[in-house]
Amino acid sequence: MSSDSSAPLDFLGIAGKTFLVMGVANKKSVAFAIAKQIEQAGGEVIYAVRSEARRESLGKLLANRRLIVCDVERQEDIDSLAAELGKDDVELAGLVHSIAFADYSEGMRPFHETTRRQFLQAIDISAYSLVAVCNALKDRFASDASVVTIGISTTRMASESYGFMAPIKAALESSLAFLTKSFSRFSQVRFNAVAAGLLKTSASAGIPGYVDSYLYAEQVIPRGKAVNTTEVASTATFLLSPRSSGITAQSIVVDAGMSINYFDADVVGAVTNASVD
């Protein structure tokens, strides 16, 4: 053991390693919170963002970082991302896939009224993109790399405030097992998800009705306050690290216990009393 007690302990084992983080939109993004933790632990982060406009808007926030434009709806962008990393012989210790999109421009509708265009676009961007990016980057991953995506705490809760995204996230979650199996033929790359409870982000704020659901979640969660992005990021950073080497094809729920407390007496009482009134 070193005699220098001031030397930092690289507990996570990610110092000096390189990670690709996809999905930073602003400083409130889960992806940005994860990237900050990677950098704080001594890792290097390469950022992939959706558009030139997004790269420009993040110029100050991500000053002196490497930013690559990659619109995951465009296979040529995904191929270009892989080519650029290959040109520099980048070896990735991990990938953060924090990408999701659903078109709610016409407001929330009953699930059965979801259009084919809406559903297929959402599954392309939010779920298939993980498969496409991992396939393109398979030669860039270290043999024991870790891939982490962001899911939701339950895909079985038919929440009207989340529109048609739960089935999309269910597809994303299912793909983890199949990616783990197919990649196991030539590597030990791991695939996991952080299944996050309701979060206060810029993207979620734009979903009709989401804020009310977020406030309700705070009432149901035993500790009385919602999950925050730092908590989700901490779980993701752990999953990216060798410390989680025995975990793969899993969705780790981070909901601060919301799922155990739906029938809290005070919440039930408030609803029933309101019904009586």
Score class of each variant (00 low, 15 high):
277 D>F: 07
272 T>H: 08
116 R>K: 13
210 Y>F: 06
45 V>P: 03
218 E>L: 05
146 S>Y: 00
277 D>T: 09
48 A>D: 03
26 N>R: 08
202 S>M: 04
208 P>D: 12
159 S>Y: 01
275 S>D: 15
43 G>Q: 07
233 A>F: 01
125 I>R: 02
156 R>T: 15
83 A>W: 06
130 L>E: 03
92 L>S: 00
28 K>F: 03
147 V>G: 08
157 M>K: 15
22 M>Y: 00
30 V>L: 01
201 T>D: 07
43 G>M: 04
202 S>T: 14
215 L>K: 12
176 L>M: 10
166 A>I: 13
105 S>K: 09
19 F>I: 01
121 Q>M: 04
244 S>W: 11
208 P>R: 09
109 R>D: 14
151 G>K: 02
9 L>T: 15
14 I>Y: 02
23 G>T: 07
93 A>H: 06
113 E>I: 07
46 I>F: 01
216 Y>E: 15
276 V>A: 13
208 P>Q: 08
168 I>C: 05
38 I>Y: 01
184 S>R: 02
160 E>T: 13
61 L>C: 05
101 F>E: 02
274 A>V: 03
38 I>V: 03
133 V>Y: 00
210 Y>W: 01
106 E>C: 00
214 Y>C: 02
147 V>R: 02
96 V>Y: 03
32 F>I: 10
8 P>S: 08
90 V>E: 05
63 A>Y: 05
175 S>R: 12
218 E>W: 02
241 S>N: 07
97 H>Y: 01
178 F>H: 15
67 L>I: 06
149 T>P: 06
199 L>H: 04
232 V>N: 00
128 Y>F: 15
273 N>Q: 15
90 V>D: 00
267 V>R: 04
266 D>N: 15
187 S>Q: 05
22 M>E: 10
77 D>A: 01
134 C>L: 10
142 A>H: 10
113 E>N: 06
57 S>A: 11
186 F>Q: 11
91 E>R: 15
130 L>W: 00
37 Q>E: 10
213 S>L: 12
96 V>W: 05
188 Q>M: 12
176 L>Y: 04
141 F>S: 00
227 V>E: 04
274 A>P: 04
166 A>F: 14
183 F>A: 13
221 I>R: 02
114 T>F: 06
82 A>S: 12
80 S>K: 13
277 D>W: 07
41 A>P: 02
28 K>C: 07
81 L>A: 04
38 I>R: 00
170 A>Q: 09
58 L>E: 01
240 L>D: 07
67 L>D: 06
